[in-house]
Design a protein around this nucleic acid. Structure first.
Length: 108
DNA sequence: TACTTGACATTTT
DNA sequence: AAAAATGCCAAGT
């Protein structure tokens, strides 16, 4: 198993979790990092780095920061998706994690 | 090999 | 409440 294969594997794991997030809900980068920590370790920046390069074909808007907000360039498109899915939002336009947070299954 | 960068998180101003 | 500083880990260059 080469280093590249290992990274591709991590990418798949992240995208898989993203794909599992139920409609109208959301999860955080930290939660994903936690779920994958047992197998790959690393911190919350890794899932983020993965998404930055593989945001194609996945429901990336269901992944938000720990405070429910999202960087400026994404907030715009994400907002539309939230409105369509009926995702609980806060006054600031950020996702209301208290109601929408979905925790990925952690590997034992 | 060394330095920079990042769709983050947490703590302190 | 909002912004700045710190800590973090690995990929990219």
């Amino acid at each position: 198993m080469t280093d590249k294969d290992r990274l591709d594997d991590y990418v798949e794991a992240v995208l898989a979790l993203v794909d599992q997030v139920p409609r109208g809900r959301a999860t955080t980068y930290g939660a994903i990092a936690d779920a994958l920590f047992d197998e790959y370790g690393g911190g919350p920046r890794q899932p983020a780095a993965v998404m930055a390069r593989h945001a194609h074909g996945v429901t990336w808007w269901r992944i938000v920061r720990s405070d429910g907000t999202l960087p400026p360039h994404l907030a715009d498109e994400a907002r539309q998706a939230y409105l369509e899915e009926g995702t609980p939002l806060r006054s600031s336009g950020a996702v209301d994690l208290r109601a929408a947070l979905w925790l990925p299954p952690v590997v034992d």
